[in-house]
Amino acid sequence: MTDDILTQRIFKMMAQLSVVRVPDIKMEHRLREDLGLDSVCSMELLSMLAEELDLDVPMEEAAQVTTVAGTVEMARRHLALKQAAAAS
């Protein structure tokens, strides 16, 4: 998956849970203040993301994510881990 496709998928998911539309989402946005997600909603976002991409993200790590960029970065890192595990 290219970075662009990954980012777009994540933005789409964010738009589903928040009131912000995809074209208005920016990397520097904060999940809480800018997208309007409360703690339950932002955990649900990360949970759905992990499920859709079949990633094993520990709860402690997900609880640290507070921005759009952080979400994308978390997904990217775990996709790379998964690919490395599959290759070995």
Partner: peptide
């Protein structure tokens, strides 16, 4: 479990 465990993996 902790609430986050459930929310992350229902």
């Amino acid at each position: 479990l902790r609430p986050g465990d459930f929310l992350m993996r229902p």
